[in-house]
Amino acid sequence: MGIISKGEWIAKDIQYRIFEQPGKFDQILSSERQLSVEYEVSRNTIRNAITILENREIIQRDGKEYRLLPTKEDFETLEIMGKQSWRTQNNVVLDTSFETNKVQSQELMQPLGTNVRKVSYIRTLADSNTPIGIETAVLPTKALDDETVANLHYQSILLFVGKQFSEAFSEEYQQVNLEHADEKMAQLLKVHRGEVVVDRHSLFVSKDNSIFVELKSSILPRFSVIVQPDQDINTKVDGFVE
């Protein structure tokens, strides 16, 4: 046997076939029995392959059937590039303004006493109202007016920033952690306390330092994907990014 087990090999092959011909999903993943005939392996091996695809959130069991899960999108990266992503809706739960203290100034890399506005909102899927995560953004007060805050219901902060200031940004710092939801977050996201969320902490700073955005997002794992695109490579893979 090679370094890739039969189950892994078949999982990859099914994945390839699904993405080549998404319309034929039902035929490709018809039945374990048929797949085991097709690949000339045991039903167990097929089950193993399917488990891998479920584990990677490519397919999901739905009763006796399987269904193809929608391709995950990195909405943060899309939005900062000024592109709309999934239809999501936001409910603002916090809106406050203050002058930065020492620690906050260091975090934002800005002078002491900078006037900032901080907003938090829950992001939900527009059609089902399912919570995806919570985002908290800090911007200079002058960059975030009341109208923009009112519009956050339809347009998340990065989309606003991406449309408004995209050209101005040269660098972005990001950190990713897994955190456990505390009582309050669990309540807002309708999950159990202690459940894992993907924490992403970004700081965008413009070339002339006049605009900055600090964003902390806590996204539920099944909605989270982080993509670091590269112009030269994206053209090569033609959307084959699972």
């Binding site: 488990t51 894992v196 794992p221 989270s224 982080i226 993509v227 670091q228 990014v241």
Partner: peptide, 26 residues
């Protein structure tokens, strides 16, 4: 040039064993 895609998933048996974590850990 590197294109990177990061997701979280739960450890399956093979990777769990190799990483010395529990099956199902993130």
């Amino acid at each position: 040039h590197v294109y990177q895609r990061i997701q979280t998933l739960r450890a399956m048996e093979k990777e769990a064993t190799l990483l010395q974590v529990d099956k199902g850990d993130w």
